[in-house]
Each structure stands twice: as structure tokens, then as C-alpha cells.
């Protein structure tokens, strides 16, 4: 379950590109590894974020995990619904549970991300 129309970051986030505004979320592999998600500390609107740095935190019933931004830019929208119902990240990580929309500075950064088949191989390696 790795949609073809998305790009993937090694810290298990996905990016949906639509011009300079990109939507991000965590992958199915990440939600499955975390288990039942009970809280997400969302990034704040208008904050500048940098690729490969922590922009939030996710808590599950068994672990806490940093949310690492796959891109650099400004947060222009966050999915407030996740504050009250973080469990939808487990149910629909690529759909209803998008986390934030980021306006990116540098489109070339997207070239560093993996496509679906590369990410599938990457997680197969990680499981070994």
C-alpha cells in the first residue's frame, strides 16, 4: 500500500506535490510501526520548517516518534482534525490523515525524495 502519485522521505513521511504547495503525512509503514496513535503535536501555521528536522511529535500507545519534515518551507495549513481524532492516522494515512500543507522554497529539494518503488525497497531493507 504505497501510492504511486506520492513522493517519500526516509523518515517515513509522504509528500503530495501540487505546484509550490505540498501536502505531507506519514506513511502506512510508519503508522503500522507506531501502533495505535493517541496524540499528534502538530506544527504551527506560519512557522518556517526545514527539511530533515523535527516539526512535531506523534504519540502512540507504545511509542513516541518525531515527525520529520520532508521539505523546507512555510506551514500554511494543518489538519486540525487530527488534534481530536489522531486515530485517523492509523485508518487513512494517505487520505483523511494528511498532516500539513507546506509552501516550499526550493523545488529541487523534491528530487531528493524517493518514488513509490524506491520507498517500497527502502522499507524492505529496513525490515531486514
Amino acid at each position: 500500500m504505497t501510492p504511486d502519485d506520492l513522493k517519500y522521505h526516509k523518515e517515513h513521511t509522504w509528500v503530495k506535490v501540487s505546484g509550490r504547495k505540498v501536502t505531507i503525512g506519514i506513511t502506512d509503514y510508519a503508522q503500522d510501526a507506531l501502533g495505535d496513535i493517541v496524540y499528534i503535536d502538530l506544527p504551527e501555521i506560519d512557522t518556517d520548517v526545514e527539511a530533515n528536522t523535527e516539526i512535531g511529535e506523534i504519540e502512540s500507545t507504545k511509542a513516541t516518534s518525531s515527525l520529520i519534515s520532508p521539505v523546507s518551507g512555510k506551514v500554511i495549513e494543518v489538519n486540525e482534525e487530527l488534534s481530536d481524532t489522531p486515530e485517523i492516522i492509523n485508518e487513512d494515512p494517505y487520505g483523511k490523515a494528511w498532516i500539513a500543507v507546506i509552501e516550499i522554497n526550493d523545488e529541487s529539494e523534491l528530487d531528493d525524495l524517493m518514488d513509490a518503488s524506491e520507498y517500497t525497497k527502502y522499507i524492505e531493507e529496513e525490515i531486514k
Partner: peptide, 16 residues
Amino acid sequence: FQFRMLARSHTIGEID
């Protein structure tokens, strides 16, 4: 060590 890894915490619903 995080309390969320502890069974006793889950029994009382206080895992943070």
C-alpha cells in the same frame, strides 16, 4: 524508559 511501555500504566490509562 517511557511509561507507555509499561503494562501497569495501560491498566490505569495513564501512559504519558
